[in-house]
Design a binder for these strands. Sequence first.
DNA 1: GCCAACGTTGGC
DNA 2: GCCAACGTTGGC
Length: 155
Amino acid sequence: MRYWLMKSEPDVFGIDHLAKAPKRTASWDGVRNYQVRNLLRDEIKFGDLAFFYHSSCPQPGVAGVMEVTSAAHPDLTQFDPKSEYHDPTSERSKPRWYAVDVTLKERFRNTVLLQELRDSAQLRTLQILRRGNRLSITPVSAAEWKSILKLAHAG
DNA sequence: GCCAACGTTGGC
DNA sequence: GCCAACGTTGGC
């Protein structure tokens, strides 16, 4: 079982959207970056756990915990002409983009702020803290996972 | 295959 | 709104 950190802009899709979704479950779709596509398709497995990270917002940080509750499947928005994620060059017989389903496990009382992550000596290796990191999904080590949970439950 | 121009991300 | 950093595009 592996750990991940998945970014989303709360204005577009935040942890509260997931909390209100049927069965607190939604498809993590709209990924249009090949490196992240490859993670979704090849590395992220049913039963993996992931932090829900809020980006591009007043208080960026880790807002809660999700579980991956499906295998990778084609991202349906690529075939939907009405979707902003529509990809007219992708064919149903050979989908280009993938998604997984995620289920909300825990919404933290307080978001673990980006600044707190930066301030933590144990999190120096966290990928999203690296300069220039732009991937919307990144792996998290078991030690990093524990450290972030500790910060979340300290307050 | 190179690389300049352009687009996107995301914190501040 | 700014800007650093990176990805993508497309002419050659």
